[in-house]
Write a protein that binds this DNA or RNA. Sequence first.
DNA 1: ATCCCGAGCA
DNA 2: TGCTCAGGAT
Length: 223
Amino acid sequence: MTYTPHILMEIFDNLHTYFGPMNWWPGETPFEIVIGAILTQNTAWSNVEKAICNLKKNNLLMPETMADLTHDELAAIIRPSGYYNIKTKRIKSFLSRLISRHNGSLDILFSLNKEDLRYELLTISGIGPETADSIMLYAAKYPIFVVDAYTRRFLMRHNLLCGDEDYYQIQEFFQDNLAEDVPLYNEFHALIVNLGKEFCRAKKPLCHLCPLKDVLNEPDPDI
DNA sequence: ATCCCGAGCA
DNA sequence: TGCTCAGGAT
């Protein structure tokens, strides 16, 4: 796939100008971000907030404390986030890995290098590519670009994908064409999510009103 | 391809 | 009432 130089930065600048700073996970603790990353899988953030609020009210945002809860106790507390039985298992599988192999310390877990941390996260049941990368970017502060369904959809519509690229090819597209910049990756992913919700929607997208309507990639001449 | 699930919104 | 949502496992 060919594309015009710096098109990603043009896209970013347009989105940032239109939406302003997204402020995702500002000033939250790394542990809260990890739990939030699991809770928000295929779930509206407003529902995750309720679950996080419950955890805070009960002073449960600590690895050992949360790990001591029974399945049913934890499930009841995170219930507003939906998928509560599955997410309880996922949180528990993360906690048991953190406690058994990293002394219950996120600082120790996050002291792994990029590749080792990614592998460590991906081998936890319930943490897939997007959740692993969200944790790496937003909690561990590694320059890792987070790819999701919104990202794929808007790249498709702007002729920046063929359609058969996998998660890591899309991630490399961003990382190879942008500076390694944690705040940039943080903001860019958040802006793409907003774009996907408000304009680049699955059904009846609002292309005529889109902040990216003038940023279009040329069709690939090789085909 | 199907299941997991509550909350908000048209 | 029906649909979607900061996905992943089976």
